[in-house]
Design a protein around this nucleic acid. Sequence first.
DNA 1: ATTATTGCATAACAGCGATATGTATTAACC
DNA 2: GGTTAATACATATCGCTGTTATGCAATAAT
Lengths: 201, 201
Amino acid sequence: MDIAARLLAENGPQALSTRRIAAEADSSTMTVYTHFGGMSGLVREMVREGFARLQERLTSVRATSDPVADMALLGRAYRFNALANPHLYAVMFGGSSLAGFSLSEEDRQHGRYTLGNVAECAERCLASGRFRPGDAILVAHQMWMAVHGLVTLELGGYLIPPYDADACVEEQLVGLMVSAGDAWEAATESVARSRERIDEI
Amino acid sequence: MDIAARLLAENGPQALSTRRIAAEADSSTMTVYTHFGGMSGLVREMVREGFARLQERLTSVRATSDPVADMALLGRAYRFNALANPHLYAVMFGGSSLAGFSLSEEDRQHGRYTLGNVAECAERCLASGRFRPGDAILVAHQMWMAVHGLVTLELGGYLIPPYDADACVEEQLVGLMVSAGDAWEAATESVARSRERIDEI
DNA sequence: ATTATTGCATAACAGCGATATGTATTAACC
DNA sequence: GGTTAATACATATCGCTGTTATGCAATAAT
């Protein structure tokens, strides 16, 4: 797993081959089959590893008395994790296009579980009265979708240069909080507060 | 191209092979090289085809006196196009993980050009006073990111069943309009109005 | 001490993208 | 119209991929 993760991170998706892994591990291609049941099993395990890293990063965001700032920091953490592991992130969400690999329902369940941290934070935002009354999981979904879209386009290089993600992400976060019901000024302030907690993540 | 598009749509990404295309066209693998310069050239052309279809679908949204409803309909059109061509959509945005293929800056420029329809609509939303004064292209980007994130997670199967995309997309659209500055009630009404124009797209 | 199981190396198979070479067919030109 | 150049394509081949069957050595179980 370590070797596979390193190969993926350093040399991209096409370096994930049984032979390269075997060469790096000074063994044969059979190791991949005895331990993972084949290439798709290894990819599956890589996806789990990717979600584990994401969850670890999200968990590093501690709850404070400003839940909206916590939520904004969760968004930043999500993006940071994706930028730190771009190839792994691509496999997690675009891996379906890899050789005959498709996620099982269990994998998706594991992926959705990662949303738990966000949902719990959304709960606190709703409880604080700053978000319009609604469903916490739905709010968490909207946060996920928006940040995921931002990150995907950023990694794909589709953001027009003067409006690159670094300049975009704060406005995106403020917009998210406003769309969830928060007031514009309060959201702006909370997002700014989250900026100063970047060292948390 | 027709054969490649059909193979991709019917049998997924791994059916995009020189040999299968050659067999389907009753010729040899060389045809792919003479006409596209190789597999990556064909993928590149498929990406252009994908953006062409997307733009065609977006162009079918006509401008009315309710620019916010037009914008919501653009969002629906974007999603419909992705659901109608899921594999093609995956190649457009996740194709980097395909065998040694990477988008050129020209391809990205062509992709961004598709945003023109959305930007023009954002301009009208801003001019109508319903959106908070700001940059039209930035607004268009935020629309793109949000809907793209929704569609990506939907195609990946990551949306929790009771909150699947069909139930999610309207709230998402309303949230987008609100985050851009529109009033909640007006946004809800415009999104509802866009629902009745679905036959346009 | 014997047996069963496991882990891994070797070799091979089918399929992939890509290339070199040869051959028809077509286009251009005088 | 005849000659030449260029293009399109087929064949065969190379190196690579995932995968499987076979066999051997080491370990675990009885």
